[in-house]
Amino acid sequence: MSSPLENPTDFSARERRALETLVKRLGDDEFVLAERYTEWQVRAPSLESDLALANNAQDELGHARLWYDVLADLDVDERDLVYERDPADFRHSTLVELPFAEGDWADAVLRSYLYDAAEDLRLEALEDSAYPPIADRVGKIRSEEEYHLEHARNWLERLAEGEEGRDRLQDALDRLFPHALTLFESATPPVETAIPTREASGSNEIERNTDETSGDRSDADAAAAVEGDIVDFGLRTATLEELGEEWLSIVVPFLESLDLDVPIDESTIGEGVEYAVTVESLPTQLGRDGTHTDAWFDLYDDLTHTYRELERSDAAKIREDPDR
């Protein structure tokens, strides 16, 4: 299937594009979720829960930096990835970008559960990645994620005990679940790949089609093609469909055990699989294809405010090459 990918300078354009697309979906998810989690700092239900969620936020943000650092070897730095990237070129799931309504702790813990359950599965599928910098990162990230998942489950179980808690969880579930499904959508490769194309041949088949009349179609094709490459090159060892099905088989029974109604159309369940992600259950904006809710653009504006205000041209690092 694939040989180990060792030296980024020897990558074909297709390999680079697959790597960049994968790392962006990983890093962007963690980055934007962390950004949202920090909204709970000084606002959580108790001082102790404030500390705990802040910790999870720092973990996720640290993971974002770890993923983004994978691209440093390809000469893409934090400035390009965060502060000077077109917000429409971010590839995170819309689950992580939605704002929290004030006091909606049910949303916070449910979102965390939906995300962390998926995170656990995708990390498992990266453990044997053909690209060593990815595989090397998985162990450390995963042991932090275990706490997150346990933390989320503990809160869900407790909130679901009360009537108001369960009602609020149900509201949050109805709202969040379609967005959670976008975690398993394939990502459109970056519009302008920041990686210089060093080969003229062998990569043309997935170049973005700039013909506007067929834009949507070619985006979807390009996303499918690059997702195929991610698995074919062994960057990730499971397909998104497999991850999505496995995720559903974990989260649906758990949420139902809390007396919550999971908004999934069970009539679409196919042969041999218990659950499947279908187009009908997805929200309008998928995130993975660069379409985002308005909230993301506001968030991006806020988080780049200082960088723009001070006319910065670089993002200051305190730590060089973490975990290298």
Binding site: N55, L66, S143
Partner: peptide, 11 residues
């Protein structure tokens, strides 16, 4: 639990 985390928290 990994007290203090497993990734770099030198900040």
């Amino acid at each position: 639990v990994a007290f203090g985390g497993t990734t770099d928290k030198s900040y």
